[in-house]
């Protein structure tokens, strides 16, 4: 089965599973296509889709790059959290907005992203495990700050950025598109990018002829972390706007992971997958008042990715 066919079949399977799930609910299976159509025809809802898609796409693009290099981090979740908290601090507490808050987010994401890279490069620690743990640590840090130094008023919550600071949807999407294009160009038009791909496919070849493992792993960790940082900024200025104490992480970074895989580890593919996910999630919101659980959209996403990846792996045998 071809790559494109696999994706289309995977997405179709995911949607079908969602509709089968809807059989048990009041609105019935046709509610899903109806909700999707409603989103696609409403400019307000499309803005929502774009705002949601932008951070997922940016995080997913960075992850796609890391995955090409064989660095299977899932740390985008924690990197996004800490990065958006950093932006929030600059915007809402120090009143430093615009490019500086964006830069701070990228920096914090990159630093936090570098940690599992360092663990892998210097101690051989598997990045899947270390980056997952770092997500929990990031969550704890955010919760701690939310209930101490950044606490605002009687509730455990931070200040929220003003309506005027919320990013325009087309701008957010534009940033996501530029990031994906930039990373795509990095992979195909630069020597380090090509070396990363070689390392992902044949580490020994890359180590012998191109660069040391350490260099490639740290580059991949840094790049995916920086992208997740930017994603954190887009999350904050797109819809998050502030934090309350959380029992779990919001999950947009994990959606980035799914987007990277559904997008076949290509930055532009991740952007496409992120748009699809956001479309589904927004349709899911529309269905919630009708008694459809909010997790339905997530179910469709997860199944679509699983089905696509399975079809692709079978094809590769």
């Amino acid at each position: 089965m071809g790559r494109l066919t696999s994706i289309i079949a995977g997405i179709a399977l995911g949607l079908m599973a969602g509709m089968i799930g809807l059989l048990a609910t009041q609105p019935g299976p046709l509610a899903l296509p109806r909700a999707l159509a409603a989103v696609l025809t409403s400019p307000g809802l499309l803005e929502n889709v774009a705002r949601l898609a932008a951070p997922i796409a940016v995080a997913g693009s960075g992850l796609a790059l890391a995955y090409r290099a064989g660095f299977i981090t899932i740390g985008s979740e924690g990197q996004m959290l800490l990065a958006s908290l950093a932006s929030l601090y600059l915007i809402a507490y120090l009143d430093i907005g615009g490019p500086w808050s964006l830069l701070a987010a990228v920096l914090v994401g990159a630093v936090w992203g570098l940690v599992p890279g360092l663990f892998r490069a210097y101690a051989g620690v598997n990045e899947v495990l270390s980056s997952l743990m770092l997500n929990y640590i990031a969550l704890s840090i955010v919760n701690y700050l939310v209930s101490t130094s950044l606490r605002e008023g009687a509730f455990t919550q931070t200040r929220f950025i003003g309506e005027d600071k919320v990013l325009e949807a087309p701008l957010a999407l534009g940033i996501a598109l530029l990031t994906a294009l930039g990373l795509e160009a990095f992979l195909t038009h630069t020597i380090p990018g090509a070396a990363m791909q070689a390392y992902g496919s044949a580490p020994r070849m890359a180590k012998t002829y191109l660069a040391t493992s350490r260099r490639i792993i740290l580059q991949a960790a840094l790049a995916s972390g920086a992208a997740a940082g930017l994603a954190g900024y887009l999350m904050l200025t797109g819809f998050q706007r502030g934090f309350t104490a959380m029992s779990t992480t919001p999950g947009y970074g994990y959606m980035g992971v799914l987007a990277a895989w559904l997008g076949l580890r290509s930055p532009l593919g991740a952007l496409g997958a992120a748009l699809l996910f956001s479309l589904l999630a927004t349709a899911g919101y529309l269905l919630q008042p009708q008694g459809v659980p909010g997790s339905m959209a997530l179910l469709v996403q997860a199944l679509a990715v699983l089905a696509t990846v399975t079809l692709l792996s079978r094809g590769g045998r």
Binding site: A195, Q197, S201, R204, M205, L210
Partner: peptide
């Protein structure tokens, strides 16, 4: 495969990159 050249990458990349 895997040491001299990287599978999945094109002939030209495998030749020119090193």
């Amino acid at each position: 495969l895997g040491w001299a050249v990287a599978p999945g990458l094109s002939i030209w990349l495998n030749t020119a990159l090193p």
